[in-house]
């Protein structure tokens, strides 16, 4: 038997197996349930964000509103654009592979952007948690969430998309992104120290009294019996004490 006849025979077998496995009847229940879950998940997410924003506005924390909007809106916009592209891809007749590559490349660049964005936000939140901004006790949690999200994108999502693109014949190099991301991630926390010092300097220049570090707190407690600060990283300003 020649090679092509052998492949043809195996293909017949595969067709036979496909017929055996192909179930009769259209039952989209699972697909529709999954889609509904996805739609409701986004809706639930939107409701949560709207509630948080409303709460922040009510509490007068306009900085929190700006930060949260910056963190959420570009991502939501990206998802909406991807969904729109997916819908339009159903009806056009362009090169399937090019469309697929284009679609994956767009997702890859979006993932890269948001991975860096996540790290920047993690750094921002970590820094903000050391200040006197309203909601500061929550900021370390936001920082941890952003850092984890960034690491997840970098470690799982981006390699998966790169593999998919490779399968389609498009070789995607990590290029500058890999070192920049890792450097940003590593530098994220040490960079906060000079930022914090700068913040404290600015506060001092403004004449706001700044609480000393933990060591100083402990010393103060030893010396005068005063309770050390319960918030280990807070910089407390007493605006009323301005000279």
């Amino acid at each position: 038997m020649t090679d092509s006849a052998r492949i043809e025979a195996l293909d017949d077998d595969l067709r036979w197996l496909g017929r055996r496995l192909s179930r009769a009847g259209f039952d989209p229940t699972r697909t529709l349930r999954r889609r509904r879950f996805e739609e409701y998940r986004y809706l639930a997410w939107a409701v949560v964000v709207a509630l948080v924003l409303a709460g922040a506005i009510y509490a007068g924390a306009w900085r929190g509103v700006v930060v949260l909007s910056l963190a959420v809106v570009p991502n939501a916009f990206g998802r909406w654009k991807a969904a729109r592209a997916e819908r339009s891809a159903l009806t056009n007749a362009e090169d399937f592979f090019e469309r697929e590559i284009e679609h994956l490349q767009r997702r890859l660049s979006s993932e890269r952007f948001f991975a860096l964005f996540n790290v920047l936000f993690a750094a921002g939140f970590a820094f903000a948690s050391t200040t006197e901004l309203r909601g500061a006790p929550l900021f370390p949690w936001f920082a941890a969430y952003c850092a984890l999200h960034g690491a997840w994108r970098f470690g799982l999502r981006i390699p998966a998309l790169t593999r998919e693109l490779e399968e389609l014949g498009s070789k995607e190099e990590l290029g500058w992104f890999g070192p920049v991301f890792i450097l940003a991630f590593i530098l994220m926390l040490p960079v906060l120290l000079p930022l914090r010092l700068a913040w404290r300097g600015i506060q001092k220049l403004r004449g706001v009294e700044v609480a000393e570090d933990d060591a100083d707190d402990d010393d103060a407690a030893d010396d005068g019996g005063r309770e050390p600060s319960s918030d280990r990283h807070s910089v407390r300003g007493k605006r009323g004490d301005r000279k």
Partner: peptide, 9 residues
């Protein structure tokens, strides 16, 4: 046939 089909797949 099944083995052949799985090999091809």
């Amino acid at each position: 046939r099944r083995e052949g089909a799985l090999r091809l797949l």
